[in-house]
């Protein structure tokens, strides 16, 4: 086994197994979502209008309970997610959406993090690749440093080496 570990074949085996497992697990799920699960997923997407940013799922306030009941009933009646969303926005305003819409000024809240991540990665990538060029050979500065060191080391031996 230790002969096999780390070889190309062993890695191929590991990667295929992982990809297979993850693919199986991600393709196999979500189709048979029950009505209860759909309603639950929706509770997390809306804010309770009276409780400072808590979601409908989190809040114990009366209005949150009302919205949970509304969602449960609509899901049971087969209303689509979009229709439920629109009905709630109509009733309580866009504040009821915990996920900011990708329109108007709210677009920034989605665009800026992506820009920051890309910018940060670019800076790091640049730092790594730029310094990557031609740093293998010692520069004159390096050699001077080593010479200086050797000299101070031999001074040291001269000074203190009497008992060595």
């Amino acid at each position: 086994m230790s002969q096999f570990a780390g070889t190309r074949a062993s890695w191929a085996f590991v990667v295929v197994a992982l990809v297979g497992l993850i693919a199986f697990a991600s393709l196999g799920g979500d189709d048979d979502q029950s009505a209860g699960e759909r309603a639950e997923a929706l509770y997390d997407k809306f804010a309770c209008p009276t409780c400072d940013g808590q979601s409908v799922a989190e809040s114990n306030a009366a209005v949150a309970a009302t919205i949970r009941e509304f969602i449960r009933d609509e899901v049971a009646a087969g209303t689509s997610d979009t229709d439920i969303r629109n009905a709630l926005v109509q009733g309580y305003g866009t504040e009821v959406l915990l996920n900011p819409p990708a329109s108007g000024i709210a677009t920034l809240v989605w665009v800026l993090p992506v820009l920051a991540l890309v910018g940060g990665s670019a800076v790091v990538f640049n730092a790594v690749s730029r310094n990557n060029l031609g740093s293998a050979d010692p520069t004159a500065e390096d050699e001077a440093l080593v010479a200086e060191l050797l000299e101070s080391a031999s001074d040291e031996v001269d000074n203190t080496g009497s008992d060595g």
């Binding site: 866009t94 915990l98 709210a106 809240v109």
Partner: peptide
């Protein structure tokens, strides 16, 4: 940081009321 303070800026900018929560 952005998710926490953005609603403040959005409201100051064009008065839009946003909530940013778990899904974001």
């Amino acid at each position: 940081l952005l998710g926490t303070v953005f609603p403040l800026f959005a409201e100051a900018f064009d008065g839009s009321r946003l909530t940013i929560g778990r899904p974001y």
